[in-house]
Computed example of a mutant assay.
Amino acid sequence: MSGLLALLDDVAAIAKVAAASVDDVIGQATKAGAKAAGAVIDDAAVTPKYVQGFSAERELPIVWRIAMGSIRNKLVILLPVALLLSAFAPWLIAPLLMLGGGYLCYEGAEKLIHSLRKGDPHALATGDPAHLEEAKVKGAIKTDFILSAEIMTIALATIETPGIWGQAAVLAVVAVAITAMVYGAVALIVKADDLGLWMARAGRTGLSRGLGRGIVAAMPGFLLVLTWVGTAAMLWVGGSIIVHGLEELGSGWLGHHIHDVALLAAALVPLQIAGATEWFATAALDGVLGLALGLALVVLITPVMGWVQGHE
């Protein structure tokens, strides 16, 4: 009997350790997710434009395909790469992130140019629906890869667990939780007009039917605004990655100047909104930097891409 009681004590002790480990993983994952909130918001703002122009019955399947691609990006590629780089080549993380930031700047600037010239290229889908869906899903997953790399890297930097398996567990929780949150929000956004239509037709009260009609009427403008927010987000995050990458590489003069200008802007407003003003000023300056770099990359890369396509 005493042996059985001792065994039960051991089992209870192991259970307590396991519970503490789970709590630690969840706590650190929550902290890491909060640190990566900026990139998470960008991801949620960028994605809905990839389903615009498709039939209503294809919207959720497209979102699901992109979400599964995002999970593969995070768990299959980025998680092991992040752990390996952190363990064996931490000096490579900043340059690789800067390459990703440059890509976001390029794509954001290209989207802006297309929008100003001939309207948003994502607003309407023409041609073979299956081919267009495949192209949009691939484009969305490619963009998600850069944003996911930023999220996972920020998360990795906040993890306090020393062991590689603990770090892997926290990163896995962050990857799954953030993907579910982002693409759950995207699914709600893209189906909001269908919900509004249903409310307008089947609502039991005049208020609910009026609210449904209001949702239907507001969604086109909301999606247009969201498209512009997504483009601005690419430029903001891309510029921010470049600035922080330069600081990691020992060249912090640009980041210092941006910080000084943001502090100056905060000093010009009431104290109650000084913090928000500093944040917005920093984000705006990062975005301007991202736009300038993106336009430069468009000028440099577009002729090369045209030459390559002409010789295929």
Rank of each mutant, 00 (worst) to 15 (best):
A177V: 15
D128N: 13
P303K: 05
L8F: 06
A180C: 06
R72I: 13
P48A: 08
A36C: 09
K138Q: 12
Y50F: 15
A217F: 13
G196Y: 02
G100K: 09
A232N: 05
L246V: 11
D9W: 01
G250M: 07
P95F: 10
I178V: 14
L263K: 08
H131L: 14
G108R: 06
T277K: 07
H259P: 02
M234E: 09
H244R: 10
A29C: 11
L295E: 10
E134H: 08
G163H: 07
L297N: 07
F88G: 01
G214P: 06
L85E: 05
I301P: 02
V304W: 05
A262Y: 02
I159G: 07
K138M: 10
T143D: 04
A37T: 13
G206Q: 11
M305V: 09
L116R: 14
P303F: 02
R117H: 11
I14N: 08
W198Q: 09
T153W: 09
I62Y: 00
I71Q: 04
L84C: 11
D286E: 15
I71E: 07
K111Q: 12
W64M: 10
A157K: 12
V243L: 03
P95N: 03
A200K: 13
A45D: 04
P220S: 08
T205H: 03
L5C: 10
